[in-house]
Simulated assay, not measured.
Amino acid sequence: MKTHLALLRGINVSGHNMIKMDALKTMLEDVGFQNVQTYIQSGNVFVDSEDESPSAVGFKIKQEIFKRFGHEVPVVVIGKEDLEACFKNNPYLKENHADTKKLYVAFISKELASGALNDLKMSQVKPDEASIDASRIYIKYDVGAGKTKFDQKYIEKKLNVTATIRNWNTVSNLHALFSK
């Protein structure tokens, strides 16, 4: 049995793709996931599964959400080691006086090639900054997430991937929950 963290993108945002967390939890239990635990309303769900493959777990969750709720919801599934790597490898945490309110992580559906940072064309989104580590993009927004072109749609278009972004506070809380 392996614990996975499913990061659902675009649910319960501005009245779109509304899914109550209790209903999501029940649906996931109904299809065989165990120890289902949700965190906040924006689609962070821990599940235990016999299936060790994150992509298979993500596909099953995405498929069941569509069947039950009629929403096409991108899902990125990660493990505890992915969250631990966020803390170890995030270059912006190593800066003096890092403003964690401006730090975000984009979790990507597949491992990125070494040239992916060039593909992002960061000059188009300056002064925002990014650093890539495997299937994560560490983001440091200059002003904030609400005032940038460098969002999940931009990343998906430039890299042809599925992405979902979490702020550093959420990443920290998810890591704490994984460690319990």
Results as ranks from 00 to 15, higher is better:
L120H: 05
D128A: 06
V105I: 11
E84H: 12
V125C: 00
Q124L: 14
K94V: 00
M122D: 05
L117A: 11
V75E: 14
I108K: 00
N118L: 07
N96F: 06
R68L: 01
V75F: 10
A130M: 04
L112H: 05
R136W: 08
A98I: 02
L93R: 03
I78A: 05
L117W: 02
L93T: 03
N90T: 00
P127V: 04
K94F: 06
E95A: 01
P127S: 08
A106M: 10
F107S: 09
V77Y: 13
D128V: 07
L120A: 04
K88E: 14
S109G: 13
R68P: 01
A130Y: 11
F69V: 11
S123L: 14
A85P: 00
D128Y: 07
E111R: 08
N118R: 09
V105P: 03
N96L: 09
H97V: 03
K102V: 02
K121D: 12
F69Q: 07
P91W: 06
C86V: 05
K88S: 00
I78G: 05
I108Y: 03
Q124W: 02
Y138A: 00
V75N: 11
V73Q: 08
A106C: 08
P91K: 11
D133W: 12
Y138V: 02
K140N: 11
I137N: 14
A116F: 01
K67Y: 09
A116V: 03
F107D: 07
F69T: 08
E129D: 06
I139F: 09
S114Q: 04
I65M: 11
S135V: 00
F69D: 14
E84F: 06
S123Y: 13
D82C: 10
K121H: 15
K67Q: 13
P74D: 04
S135T: 00
S114P: 00
K102W: 07
F107H: 15
Y141G: 06
A116G: 10
R136Q: 10
V73A: 06
V105W: 08
G70T: 11
K140I: 07
N89Q: 11
G115P: 01
I78Y: 06
V75S: 11
I65A: 03
I65L: 14
L117F: 01
C86R: 04
H97E: 14
R136N: 01
